[in-house]
Design a protein around this nucleic acid. Structure first.
Lengths: 213, 213
DNA sequence: CGGCGATTTGAATTACATCAATCTAGGTGG
DNA sequence: CCACCTAGATTGATGTAATTCAAATCGCCG
């Protein structure tokens, strides 16, 4: 989701500030603009009829998101207080000279998200809860770890993570605890963590509750 | 995935014929063209390092697919003998007058696939094997059922379906059998089926193997 | 006709969900 | 500034849907 930041450089945009938990748009809204995250963290989600929720993506500075060319197929909320740049589709598509640039920026943005989500499908199809959480931590570390060499801030709740990874929040908690026990994960009280990918030793099931024996 | 068929009407294309199981492109190839299915059925898939396979999408006449603007992030194979139209990206993006048309066609194509896949993520996150197969049959029925009022041809293998739905092929077989038993599904020897969405009565687990008793 | 992949079926195992009960912390109002 | 309050996180116990392993059968293609 590391978007085509540079492709949007020249395009006109309007700055947007969204408080923590603030709504950016909702599923079903008319889609008339593309957003770029400049600071903070944004959550893209869809709500199922049965009350369940699916987190489609977490977006960080540099990422762009659109979620629909006519109608939004997902809702967007700020996980933490965020600043965004808003680019209208009209401007991106209608300019004369910038025609290709704007369109290609859109294309890249969507295609990149598609690519990312394909990876998620693979993860959701086959990976265990352990592997999902490990992948998530590694991804987060790589994505936003640059700012803090040792410890990465975790802006979203465990419920968010659970809905992102397709597992129960209790399972997320258990995996975290298990990773801490094995030394792969260290957490601070202020929601920062340090994760190092272990060469897979000691990979037992999280909920390995030996049945009575 | 019912693509922007009309948007591509004027664009120049080259017809392609692919035999059953034939390769259209492979993950990692340079992406230089968009395809439209004119007849047959195409399977988009990615292969995991551990040998597992994920079927990203099944594509039918009218659908377009691209899978990457620079490099293919998935492989494409013909499930059954297929005919395709090939549109080069250069032509779609470089024309003068058609500029916006071609670009918008691409955008729509990608965005539509993204929308579809979001739905799959929801399915993979929460739905039971039963619900997955039922959804698949209903989708297939709706998508290609128009040709045959009563019976729909199932071009792909159960393994394909399993890899698409993120379940084991044995489970697919068991769900099919269970749906036949409940009367919701009728299968013919020549891989045709008739499915009617049952108002959910008798929805017991597929593998309901009563434990000893 | 022979062979190999696809499908079917069975039995045992298991990873995870679910239900339930604390425990904790951030935020609010007095 | 502190007590409360509520959402989030933790932890335990139990049930179960689906995987996995295994074996038999079917069916298509050469």
């Amino acid at each position: 989701m590391t978007g085509p930041k540079d492709l949007l450089e020249g395009a006109p945009s309007r700055p947007i500030r969204v408080p923590k938990a603030g709504e950016i748009f909702r599923e079903g809204d008319r889609a008339d603009a593309l957003f770029r995250v400049d600071a903070g963290c944004v959550r893209l989600e869809t709500d199922q009829e049965d009350g369940r929720r699916d987190v489609i993506a977490f977006l960080f500075p540099g990422d762009t998101f659109l979620a629909g060319l006519e109608t939004r197929w997902a809702s967007a909320y700020a996980v933490s207080a965020s600043t965004l740049s808003r680019f209208t589709l009209r401007q991106l598509l209608d300019g004369r000279e910038q025609d290709r640039t704007g369109a290609v920026a859109l294309l890249s943005s969507i295609d990149e998200m598609l690519h990312d989500i394909i990876h998620r499908v693979a993860l959701l199809s086959h990976a265990t809860a352990n592997a999902r959480v490990a992948w998530f931590l590694g991804w987060l570390d790589e994505r936003i770890g640059g700012d803090f060499p040792d410890e990465v801030h975790l802006p979203m709740t465990q419920r968010d993570i659970a809905d992102f990874l397709g597992i129960a929040p209790e399972t997320v908690s258990r995996v975290f605890r298990s990773l801490e026990a094995s030394g792969q994960l260290r957490r601070t009280p202020d929601h920062r963590f340090r994760f190092r990918k272990n060469p897979d030793r000691n990979v037992t099931a999280v909920n390995a509750q030996r049945p009575g024996l």
